[in-house]
Amino acid sequence: MAAQEHTSKSGFETRAIHAGYDPDPTTGAVIPPIFATSTYKQDGVGGLRGGYEYSRSGNPTRTALEGNIAALEEGERGFAFASGLAAEDTLVRGLLAPGDHVVFPNDAYGGTFRLFDKVERLWGIDHTPVGHAPEDVRAAIRPGTTKMVWVETPTNPLLNIVDIEAVAAVAHEAGALLVVDNTFASPYLQQPLTLGADVVVHSTTKYCGGHSDVVGGAVVVRDLDLAERIAFHHNAMGAVAGPFDSWLTLRGLRTLALRMERHSENAERVVEFLTRHPAVSHVYYPGLPDHPGHEVAARQMRRFGGMVSFRVTGGEAQALAVCERAEVFTLGESLGGVESLIEHPGRMTHASVAGTELEVPSDLVRLSVGIETADDLIGDLDRALHGAAAPDSLTR
């Protein structure tokens, strides 16, 4: 299954539809088949057809996804994993060794913090949580020991912004790799490799898949030597995406541009409402002119995305009540699906950072704004903030 050549000169939407797969030469199928096979017939000992021998090492459906997401991130090679955390673990243990040090964001996703703090630390990899400014990163670097700088932008759940180009310069000056978790932005809104990052990581469960029906992860790089190191550990550690999961994620990527535009439009409407509401004390959204990272976000992102966080005036009890009263917004973890989700980070997605310097405010509510009718989303939040129930017409 030879992939078409689609360079960065092709438009994003064109790459999303065509990159990674040519129509099947036998049937003309325009969508990649789901190759539900574990092994492949060889034409003699060592005579592989298309390079495939065993589906942990390679599967045509996964190859199509990997080529597609690499093209969307303007990278040279992509790798599809069973989950975002599987991608992170393989990346860290594949590129680092015991005794190495990682500079790490001080408001990272709770699962990523747990991975570094409870798993990688036992393997001998240390980390230092720091702020997002380049000078904070520089101050935390340990000469000769820091081998990786890890950033999220926007961060989860406080939506801080990192200047990728500036932090890349700091990391490279120290001889360290810059890894950017691009999950919140997606490849449509931001392409970190073009700004100097060495590695991009995704939880493809989120915006890339986009329909809350698949769990997956991805890593994309530009440097082919680095790609070979990751490829070895991808196969050796084995946390690869299965063919059906790969197919679902690839299906999601084909509509990513359309969905991200609608997510962003709806989020902007929701933010406009929240900033005027008397029960809301603070709104976190990089599209707001007074957001401390607004200028950087405007420079390195196409739009500001579908994630919104806010704090309520009544403390934790009110935040929990808002989450429980919402009806159109579904109370649930994860993000990036077509449906809107609401959650309490302190009790849910970020419970693992409670009691640490990454602990999030107890009155914080996080929204993943979906693609429903914006007026319905705003009405639902208004009722939840006032303690009223949604009408039956919205909840049937």
Rank of each mutant, 00 (worst) to 15 (best):
A97S: 15
P98I: 05
A176E: 05
F79T: 03
P157D: 01
G131F: 02
P143H: 07
H172T: 12
A108R: 01
T128I: 13
A70G: 13
D163W: 12
P129L: 00
A80Y: 00
L85K: 12
W150I: 01
I69F: 10
A169M: 12
E120F: 10
G111D: 06
P98N: 09
T155I: 14
A82Y: 11
P143M: 09
R142A: 14
A86Y: 14
V180Y: 04
G67A: 08
H127V: 11
A168I: 02
W150V: 00
L65S: 05
A80I: 03
A70N: 08
G111F: 03
T90R: 06
F116W: 13
A140L: 06
A80L: 00
T90Q: 11
A108N: 05
V179R: 10
L65C: 13
F113V: 10
L85N: 14
A97V: 15
D107I: 02
D117K: 07
V170G: 10
P129Q: 06
A139V: 13
K147F: 07
D163L: 02
V179P: 01
R121E: 08
T128N: 13
P157E: 07
V119T: 12
W123L: 08
L96R: 13
R121C: 09
Y109D: 12
T112C: 11
G75C: 07
H101C: 01
F113I: 06
M148G: 02
H132A: 13
P157K: 01
L158A: 05
D89M: 14
G67P: 00
E120M: 15
G84W: 03
T146I: 01
V119H: 12
I69H: 06
A87W: 02
I141W: 04
I141A: 02
N160H: 15
